[in-house]
Nucleic acid binder design. Sequence first.
DNA 1: CTGAAAGCGCTTACAG
DNA 2: CTGAAAGCGCTTACAG
Lengths: 346, 346
Amino acid sequence: MTIHEVAARAGVSPATVSRFLRGQSVRSPEAIRAAVDELGYWPSAAAQSLKSGRTHTIGVVVPDITNPYFAAVVKGMESVTRTENYRILLANSDESSEREDHVLADMARRVDGVILAPATERDQTPLKLRDSKVPLVFIDRDLMEGDEFDAVLVDNVDGARQAVEHLLGLGHTRIAAINGPPDTTPGRRRREGFLAALTARGVGIAPEHDLIGDFRESSGYQLTLSLLSLPEPPTAIFTANNLMTLGALKALHDMRVDVPGRISLIGFDDLDTGPLLRPPLTVIDRPMVEQGVLAMRLLLRRLDPQYVDDIPRRIVLGVKLIDRASTAPPKGQHVPPPRARKARPA
Amino acid sequence: MTIHEVAARAGVSPATVSRFLRGQSVRSPEAIRAAVDELGYWPSAAAQSLKSGRTHTIGVVVPDITNPYFAAVVKGMESVTRTENYRILLANSDESSEREDHVLADMARRVDGVILAPATERDQTPLKLRDSKVPLVFIDRDLMEGDEFDAVLVDNVDGARQAVEHLLGLGHTRIAAINGPPDTTPGRRRREGFLAALTARGVGIAPEHDLIGDFRESSGYQLTLSLLSLPEPPTAIFTANNLMTLGALKALHDMRVDVPGRISLIGFDDLDTGPLLRPPLTVIDRPMVEQGVLAMRLLLRRLDPQYVDDIPRRIVLGVKLIDRASTAPPKGQHVPPPRARKARPA
DNA sequence: CTGAAAGCGCTTACAG
DNA sequence: CTGAAAGCGCTTACAG
C-alpha cells in the first residue's frame, strides 16, 4: 500500500497525492480523498522520516516509570504530544548512567528531541546529543554543564528548607535526613537545603543522621532501620523522595515505631495515597503533570527553526508543604504554642 | 554522517560496511571498526526501516500509565525489549476507544507489533491491525473477537470469587460491588465472578449494591458515597480495581466510616502502599511486572517468521488474596470461628 | 496546479 | 569476500 497506488486510483501523480496529504490545494481533492479512504492508505513513517529528516517522535528517558512522579510527568508530556502530532519513545535508565548512555545513543537517530532526567549530573552522553544537534530538555534533574539546555526543575533547596523549618517549629532538634545520591540534582540540592536550613538556625546534625540513599524504596527502608538502631535515634526524619519515604514508613511500621508519636516523618514528593497512609503523610509537594507539560512544550518549541537558537529556558517551579499528620512535636518536648494546621483535605 | 563516509574512510564500499555492521565476516574489520568509532557513526533508523520493513519498535497502548498496575506492566515489557534490541512507543488511551483508534492507526506504520489493553471489548481498530499484518497481543483486557490473538490475562472470575468467599466467610451478607465498565474484560468478568459466587452460596444482592464505575479513582469515591447514603448500606464493598479502591477508601475516610469496623473493603489489585494504608488493604493480587514480560515475549516470538502462524497463545494467570486488615466480620454479627490470618508481611 | 525525476541512507541479490 | 546497482516509499525543487 503505497502512495503510488493511491495516485493510480485517483488518476493523479504521487506528487499530487503527497501535496494533498500535506494540505496543499490540488485540483481533484475529492478523488484523492476517496482513493485514500478506500485503500485505507497511511503513509510510511520510515519513508517520510528518511526524506524529511524528522521522525515526529520524542525520546523520554526517566529513571523509573513505576515511580508515580515520573508516571505523572510522562502523562503530562503525552497530553501535549497528542495535539501536536508527536509520539513518545519511552525508556527507563534504572538510575544507571551506563544504561542511559545506551538508550540515548540509540535514540539519537530515532527521535527529533529528548527529554531526560539524567541518572547523574556528570553524565557525558547528553552532551554528545547536543553535538549531534538533537535538542535536549532536562526534567527533575540537571547536568553539571546543563546551563546550555532547556530545563524544568523545582526549588529543591527551598523544599528541604521548608521541611526543616517545619520540624524545627515543632521543636525537633535531632533531625535525620535520608538523602538521594549526591551526584543527582535532587540528591545534592535537597541535602544542601537541609543542612543550610539547620545551620541557619544554629542546629547541628550528627554525621550518622546525614545518610545517603539511592531513591529506591529499599534504601529508605534500610537506612531507617539503621537510624533506629542508633544509641540516640533522631526524633524526626526527612526523606528526599517519595519511594524512600515509603521505605522509611514501612521500616517504622515493622519496628512498631509510633509515627509521629516517637518519630516524625516528612518526605519530598506527595503520593496519590498520601492522605490515606497511616499516618497521613506530611510532604513537600510539587507540580508533577505540569512539569511534564512544560518540558514537552519547551522541547517542541526548540524544534521550531524559529526558536532553535533562543537562549536556554530554565524553569524552576516552587514547592509547598502539605501539612498532614506524620509530623508532631517530639515526645517529652515542650509543646510549642498551637499553630493552625490545615484540615485534612475533603 | 552516512555509511558512505565510513566506507570512504575505511577504504571499502558501503555494502561492506553494512555487512560488517550486521556481523558478517569481512576482510578488514579493524579498519571499518576504527572508521565507525572515529566518526561516531550510527545508522539511520529511518533508512534501515525503509529497506527492511522492520522498525524494531513495539507500540504499547494502555489506558493510563499513572495506574501503578500499568506502570509495572510497562516496566516488565521494557526489561525484555532491552535485551532484544527493541524499543517502546508508548501511548495512553485514557480509557477511550476513540483515542485508541487514533493511536493504533498512527502506530500501524511505525511499529513491528502492538501490545494493547483495549478500552473496550468491542473496539474495532485492533482487528484492522491484524488485516495490515501487525501482530497484536492483548494484556489485562481482551476483545470480544480476541481469540485469534495472543493474550496475557488473569483469572478475573476466580479473583472476584475469592473476594466474595472471603467476605462471606467473615459473615457478610450485604455486600456491594463497585465494578468496572461492563464492556471491558475486567469490568465484565469480575462482576460475573462476583455475582456467581454470591448466587452459588444463595446470597442475594440488592440492585443498588451492584454499581458500575469507570476504573478511575473519582468513580470509586462517588459510588462509595452513594452506597453510604443508602437506607441500608452494605457491610462490605468489593472494588474492581486499584484506583477505585483508593477512591472508596478516601470516601470512607472523609465520611468518618470505620474500616473494617463498620464497612469492610476488599479491592482487586494490590498497591505498593497497600500495607501502609489505613487500614492495610485486603486485596486480590496478581503478577504485574511478569504480565508485561510475558506479553512482550509473546509478541517478539510472533515477530519471528518461524512462529508467525502458530496458534494464538492465551495465557491466563492465577490471582491470590492477600489478607490484611481492611476486612473483618460485620458489626453486631456473630463472629465466625477464628481463622488463621496471614501476619503482616515484614 | 501538475508531473517527472532526483535523492534521503540504507540493504541485498547479483555478478565477479 | 567484495562492489555496483537497484530499490524501499516518500517529498520537493524544477520545469511546464
